[in-house]
Simulated scan of single mutants.
Amino acid sequence: MAKQFDGFTEDHTAFIAAQHLFFVGTAADTGRVNISPKGMDSLRVLGPNRLIWRNLTGSGNETAAHLAAHNRMTLMWCGFEKRPMILRAYGTARTLHPRDAAFAALNADFPPSHGARQIYDVTVEMVQTSCGYAIPFYGHQGSRDVLADWADNKGPDGIATHWETRNQHSIDGLPTHIMADPDA
């Protein structure tokens, strides 16, 4: 049976900290709904109604485009290893790019990365748990270093080129504002 909460409890925060994977869902008015798996050391719960997660440069940039249209976001964690629970956080998110004043302070909460593309500052409006009894067991074997190595090999100039050539629009053609003029 699903239970709803006004924010994260200590138990929820401990559950999130124990997970190696989470999912992010966003959507614009039209086009595709995006659900992305996220890992690495990229999420911090800052309070009962606030979390941040750092988005690293990748092949697409759907979340930024969707949030520019509608700032709603859902995050989900599944207990694959021990505890059979699904936890969802529903809320709104503010997109911060490296050019934004608040980005550096929040980015300092994470390990250094040339690939840091956005930080999403999420206001959590509701948390929901459900049983997760149908979720299979999966064992965590370790983190992949491929994305971090890719970003290190590209360096800051290569990352900027990738943003310009591959990350300015969603797959539905919506702007991501990754290259927006900070003085505009």
Rank of each mutant, 00 (worst) to 15 (best):
A28E: 01
D29I: 00
G31S: 02
R32V: 08
R32L: 11
V33H: 06
N34S: 14
N34I: 01
I35V: 14
I35T: 12
P37Y: 01
P37E: 09
G39E: 08
R44E: 05
V45D: 01
L46A: 00
L46Q: 02
P48S: 07
N49W: 03
N49Q: 10
R50M: 01
I52R: 05
W53R: 09
R54Q: 15
N55K: 12
S59R: 15
G60R: 14
N61K: 12
E62Q: 15
T63W: 10
A65M: 01
H66D: 06
L67W: 01
L67E: 08
A68G: 15
T74P: 00
W77T: 05
G79E: 08
R83G: 00
M85N: 02
I86L: 07
I86V: 14
I86S: 06
L87I: 12
R88N: 03
R88L: 02
Y90E: 09
A93W: 01
A101V: 11
F103Q: 13
F103I: 11
A105P: 10
A105C: 01
A105G: 12
L106V: 07
A108L: 03
P111D: 03
P112V: 11
A116Y: 05
A116P: 05
R117D: 04
I119R: 06
Y120T: 09
Y120N: 14
D121I: 00
V122A: 10
E125G: 14
M126W: 04
M126S: 12
T129R: 13
T129Q: 08
C131R: 11
C131Y: 10
Y133L: 13
F137T: 15
F137K: 15
F137R: 15
H140P: 08
Q141M: 12
R144Y: 12
R144A: 14
D145Q: 06
V146P: 01
L147D: 10
L147E: 12
A148N: 10
W150Y: 14
D152M: 10
K154W: 02
K154P: 00
G158S: 10
I159K: 11
A160W: 07
A160L: 14
H162L: 13
